[in-house]
């Protein structure tokens, strides 16, 4: 084991990392755009209920409150699903880089022990 071979091996291991990150972060953004769209829709419905309450007080129910509430809950659930997917993608990106970093740190440690790596 020497710095050159460790470097070659690591470069090979991380050769796809940039593309993976670009893809994952792009997917996170796309999902976020969808999520914002869904959120905008349920906020519009929510504001319909609140507008009615402001005009008529909270004791009188909006004629379509049940229907609106159900739709709002559906959209919120859809948003939550999208967000869970985003969390998974973000954790995947973290795992990918952490895996390579950990391996490199281990190899650097071994090279330093053998005195094969020039000091910083």
């Amino acid at each position: 084991m020497d710095p050159s071979s460790v470097l070659d091996q690591t470069i090979q291991d991380v050769s796809n990392l940039q593309a993976e990150f670009t893809h994952i972060l792009g997917e996170i953004r796309a999902s976020d755009t969808q999520l914002l769209d869904q959120r905008k829709k349920y906020m519009q419905k929510d504001s319909q209920i609140h507008k009615f309450i402001r005009q008529h007080g909270s004791l009188q129910e909006h004629p379509k409150e049940q229907e609106l509430s159900e739709k709002i809950r559906e959209k919120m659930s859809a948003c939550k699903n999208l967000q869970e997917q985003k969390c998974t993608m973000a954790n995947t990106a973290l795992y990918l880089v952490a895996k390579h970093l950990s391996r490199l740190e281990k190899n650097i440690g071994l090279l330093e022990e053998d005195g094969l790596l020039a000091p910083v």
Partner: peptide, 17 residues
């Protein structure tokens, strides 16, 4: 040079992490 590259690569991966 390889030692320096290795340390630089380590730094870049740390930043990414």
């Amino acid at each position: 040079l390889n030692s320096q590259k290795l340390r630089l690569l380590h730094q870049e991966l740390e930043h990414a992490k």
